[in-house]
Amino acid sequence: MNNRIAELQTSLGNSLVQAYSSHDWEIITMFYGEVGQLAQASSECTDAQGVPHYESIPDLADDACAALKDACATPEHGTWLSLNVKIVRSTGQLNVTYNYDEKSEWDFDPQPENYLLELERYPRPAREIPAWYPKPENYPNWHEEA
């Protein structure tokens, strides 16, 4: 992992801890997905009694996620489709996992055109495009629809 990615992950974690500072949390989790022109994020903390609490995603967390998308991109592999964050208070552990290949669980299904735009922005070799991914030849006018 390069220094820029580490800095962005730390910024993301710190902004979430700050957002939940009024709660006596044990664990903070966050989902962030971005494909094409769509993004979705959700987070929660769980207290010692197992009760979930919700706060708005801080702008700094959104900004860090968007910057991480670019920082993780390579011409050889494209970039991730979603990420999950888990912060454990007792250990101070921040874990960020990136999903490059699996179809994310969104509250709604992104249109195929958004996935094609994603592939245009962050190209991947054909062997690294998941089987479930929309095929450009099946959407010849997708540029007009995106």
Rank of each mutant, 00 (worst) to 15 (best):
F31P: 00
Q37L: 11
T46L: 12
E120D: 09
L94P: 01
E113K: 08
A131G: 03
I27N: 07
P136E: 13
F31E: 11
Y122G: 00
L94S: 04
A66H: 13
Y98H: 05
K103M: 15
G92P: 03
V85I: 06
H77Y: 05
E34I: 02
A64K: 01
L38P: 10
T79R: 05
F108S: 14
N114C: 12
E26W: 06
N95S: 11
E44W: 12
S43W: 09
D62V: 01
S21R: 11
G13S: 07
E118Q: 08
L81W: 08
E105L: 08
Q18N: 07
G33C: 15
I28P: 10
A146P: 00
K86E: 12
D47I: 04
V96N: 01
P136N: 07
Y139D: 12
E144T: 05
Q93M: 05
N95F: 06
N3A: 10
S43K: 04
A48D: 08
S56N: 13
Y20Q: 08
G36R: 05
Y32A: 09
H77T: 10
W132D: 10
D70V: 09
E102T: 07
T74C: 07
T74F: 10
L16Q: 07
Y115Q: 13
I87P: 00
S90E: 14
T74V: 08
P123F: 07
G36W: 04
G13L: 01
L68A: 00
V51I: 10
A39R: 15
